[in-house]
């Protein structure tokens, strides 16, 4: 048994190995290293991270980061420009919501009309916990019955009707 577990653990650890070993690969001296597509990879990374949480307005449920639509490209360019101009992420978000509204945000802001959205899951869990507690109290009070009496009686009743 212990072997099984050890093997499972080993598999987990071994499985991680490839992601750790990042060695510089040897390359043909003549080959040229490919340039990143973005002019400024740092800004690009920031832009993508931000755009992943934004909606491509003209697509059906696609993020601004992934969309190939023209408007999405324009908006990405706009975000890049704003970032280059030294705007912070919240400022860029404000810039976009001032033009396109909250619809552009995949993470809806927390405000009165979205309170239910954000607190709903907590309420559900609370209601569930209450239901769990009430059921348990009631069930604990139920006197212990022979475990299968009811089931067997029901089956017998059924089978009698069947004949």
């Amino acid at each position: 048994m212990m072997d099984r577990i050890r093997n499972a653990m080993l598999a987990l650890v071994l499985a991680c190995a490839p992601c750790v070993a990042i060695g510089a690969a040897t390359n043909d001296a003549a080959a040229v290293e490919a340039a990143p597509n973005a002019e400024n990879p740092e800004i690009e990374q920031r832009m993508v991270r931000l755009a992943e949480d934004l909606r491509c307005l003209v697509c059906q449920n696609e993020s601004l980061a992934g969309s190939k639509a023209e408007l999405a490209e324009d908006l990405r360019r706009e975000i890049r420009d704003q970032m280059k101009a030294g705007k912070s992420d919240p400022e860029v978000i404000d810039y976009l919501t001032a033009r396109y509204g909250d619809f552009v945000l995949y993470r809806p802001p927390f405000k009165p009309v979205t309170w239910l959205l954000w607190l709903g899951p907590v309420l559900f869990l609370g209601a569930g916990a209450a239901a769990w507690y009430v059921t348990l109290r009631r069930r604990r009070a139920v006197a212990a019955e022979p475990p299968d009496a009811e089931k067997l009686a029901a089956a017998a009743r059924l089978l009698k009707e069947d004949q």
Binding site: L57, V58, L71, D74, L75, E78, R99, Y100, G101
Partner: peptide
């Protein structure tokens, strides 16, 4: 031409 004013007006299409 570059659609920048369009963005200012929130044009999507």
């Amino acid at each position: 031409l570059d659609g920048r004013v369009g963005i200012d007006y929130g044009v999507t299409g």
